[in-house]
Amino acid sequence: MGQSERQKMAVGEWYCCLDPELDGLRTLAREAVHEHNTMSPGQRGGIGPALSMLFADVAERVFIEAPFHCAYGMNISIGPRVYLNAGCTILDTAPVRIGEGCMLGPGVHIYCAEHHKDPAQRRRGLEIARPVEIGRDVWIGGGAIILGGVTIGDGAIVGAGAVVTKDVEAGTTVIGNPARALVAK
């Protein structure tokens, strides 16, 4: 018997996102996200209980402002002392790792899924998942978009509104669309 669509997604092969098993997993994520986003802040604490249980790994002192959205949750790992401001979205069709001490501004989006370039294949729901790795002590400004397959090195800064399509070296500041290193004058 061949691999399931979930297995194909997990190993970075083309898969059909219209699969019933994947739809069921997205439904679980929507329920956890709904709980997180609608609980009173005092009751929720840093992260809603269902969302915390859904994630692959959540360290101590993680704070995720509401509203928040994720596709699956099960592919997200968050290190200690991480802060996600309001409106962050993580479409985690592949592993997303956020290192210790990171700060993500409001409306930061991380997109792991890449849809097929052929319109007929897109209609069939074919996509491929690419992981995102964010090192320690990274600051990502509000409205930035991080695309799948990107690694952001320790201590890097991503300027507000940047669209990150390629790896960012440790200690580098990137800005713009597509994001490029800021050069001091």
Rank of each mutant, 00 (worst) to 15 (best):
Ala94Met: 06
Asp167Lys: 11
Ile140Glu: 11
Leu84Pro: 05
Gly135Val: 00
Ala113Leu: 14
Met9Lys: 08
Ala179Trp: 12
His116Thr: 02
Val62Arg: 03
Leu126Cys: 06
Gly149Ser: 09
Leu51Ile: 00
Val163Ala: 09
Glu13Asp: 14
Glu21Arg: 12
Glu13Met: 08
Ala10Ser: 13
Arg130Gly: 02
Ala56Arg: 15
Asp118Ala: 11
Pro67Asp: 10
Gly24Pro: 02
Ile145Asn: 01
Asp167Gln: 08
Ala113Glu: 13
Val158Met: 11
Val163Ile: 14
His109Trp: 04
Asp57Tyr: 13
Thr165Ile: 13
Gly79Ala: 02
Met39His: 08
Pro67Asn: 12
Glu100Lys: 11
Glu133Thr: 10
Glu169Ser: 12
Ile76Ala: 01
Val33Asp: 00
Glu127Asn: 07
Cys112Glu: 09
Ala50Ile: 06
Val58Ser: 13
Arg44Lys: 08
Ala56Gly: 08
Ala59Lys: 02
Pro41His: 00
Cys88Trp: 06
Arg123Asn: 09
Arg136Met: 00
Leu84Trp: 05
Ala94Cys: 10
Met53Tyr: 03
Gly24Met: 11
Ala144Met: 09
Gly171Tyr: 05
Thr172Ile: 15
Val174Gln: 00
Arg124Lys: 15
Arg44Tyr: 10
Pro106Lys: 02
Leu25Asn: 04
Leu18Val: 04
Ile47Leu: 15
Ile76Arg: 05
Val132Arg: 04
Leu28Gln: 14
Thr89Asn: 14
Val158Thr: 02
Arg124Tyr: 03
Asp19Ser: 11
Ile98Phe: 05
Glu60Ala: 10
Cys16Val: 07
Arg61Trp: 11
Gly87Asp: 07
Ser77Gly: 13
Met53Val: 08
Val164Gly: 05
Tyr72Ile: 10
Glu114Ala: 08
Thr27His: 09
Glu13Lys: 10
Pro49Ile: 08
Asp167His: 14
Tyr111Met: 13
Pro80His: 07
Ile134Lys: 05
Ala94Asn: 09
Glu100Val: 05
Glu127Phe: 10
Thr151Ile: 03
Val11Asn: 07
Gly101Ile: 07
Gly161Cys: 01
Glu169Pro: 10
Asn85Ala: 15
Gly73Pro: 00
Cys112Lys: 00
Asp57Ile: 05
Ile78Glu: 13
Ser4Thr: 15
Gly143Gln: 03
Thr27Ser: 05
Ile110Arg: 08
Gly135Cys: 08
Ala10Gly: 09
Leu147Tyr: 07
Asp137Cys: 01
Thr38Leu: 09
His34Met: 06
Ala94Phe: 01
Glu60Val: 02
Gly141Glu: 13
Gly141Pro: 09
Ala86Phe: 12
Ile146Arg: 04
Met74Ala: 06
Ile134Pro: 00
Gly73Glu: 09
Gly46Asp: 11
Arg61Met: 12
Pro20His: 10
Ala170Gly: 00
Val158Lys: 01
Thr93Glu: 13
Tyr15Thr: 03
Thr173Tyr: 04
Asp167Pro: 07
Ala181Arg: 14
Val138Gln: 05
Ala181Gly: 04
Thr27Lys: 12
Ala32Pro: 04
Glu60His: 01
Val158Pro: 02
Lys8Gln: 11
Ile78Gln: 10
Glu100Asn: 11
Val62Phe: 03
Val82Thr: 04
Met53Cys: 03
Asp92Tyr: 06
Gln3Glu: 14
Arg26Cys: 01
Thr27Met: 06
Thr151Asn: 06
Phe63Pro: 01
Gly73Met: 07
